[in-house]
Computed example of a mutant assay.
Amino acid sequence: MTTVRDVCRHVRSKNAGPYWVTFDLFFDGAESFALYQDSPALGPQAFERLFGADPALVRRYPVPDLNVVKISYARTAPQGGMVERDMHCGQQFVRLLDVKLD
């Protein structure tokens, strides 16, 4: 089974304003990008399962020239709430690393 960590040289997550979180998946080359950019394993249902995101508010933006896929979703609560554990969402990417793409 191929995982995100197997085909991406870098994965990061961050805030995209106070209401959205975004992930950047930097694939290790054009071949991996072409194979996995549209993988259902990185679809809205995966973000619902992993992050509690509303599947209707998950957006995917492929950037073929850079072999990057940007995936964003609306936060369930605005940034900075009382129980915020990762204010800048810099650690959220970890849950994606072991997602099976095949």
Results as ranks from 00 to 15, higher is better:
L25H: 04
D98P: 04
Q79W: 06
D28W: 00
Q45H: 13
S13L: 09
S13F: 02
V94T: 14
G43N: 04
R95P: 12
Y19L: 10
N15D: 13
F47A: 06
R85S: 14
M82F: 14
L97E: 13
L57G: 00
M82H: 15
V21K: 05
P78D: 09
P18W: 06
V11T: 14
F27L: 11
P78A: 14
D86G: 13
A56G: 02
L35Q: 12
V21C: 11
D102H: 11
V63L: 15
M1L: 13
F23V: 01
L101C: 06
N15K: 10
K14P: 00
G90R: 10
R49I: 03
V21T: 13
E31M: 04
D54I: 10
D6R: 04
D28F: 00
A77H: 08
K100I: 05
Q91Y: 09
M87T: 11
R95H: 15
Q92G: 03
V58C: 04
A34N: 14
F26C: 02
G90K: 08
V7Q: 05
F33Q: 02
D6N: 14
L42N: 07
G81D: 11
D102Y: 04
R12F: 08
P78F: 03
D98C: 09
R49F: 04
F93L: 09
N15I: 10
R49Y: 07
V83P: 00
C8H: 03
S72Y: 08
G29Q: 01
F47R: 13
P18R: 07
A16S: 14
M1T: 15
L42Y: 05
T76K: 14
D65W: 14
P40L: 10
A46N: 08
M82V: 15
V99K: 08
G17Y: 01
G81E: 12
D65K: 15
R12D: 03
S32C: 12
H10M: 06
G29E: 07
R49M: 09
Q79L: 13
H88F: 12
V58N: 02
D86L: 12
G80K: 15
E31V: 10
L57Y: 06
G80F: 09
V94W: 03
N15V: 11
P64V: 09
F26Q: 04
H10T: 05
S32M: 09
F27T: 01
Q91V: 12
V21G: 01
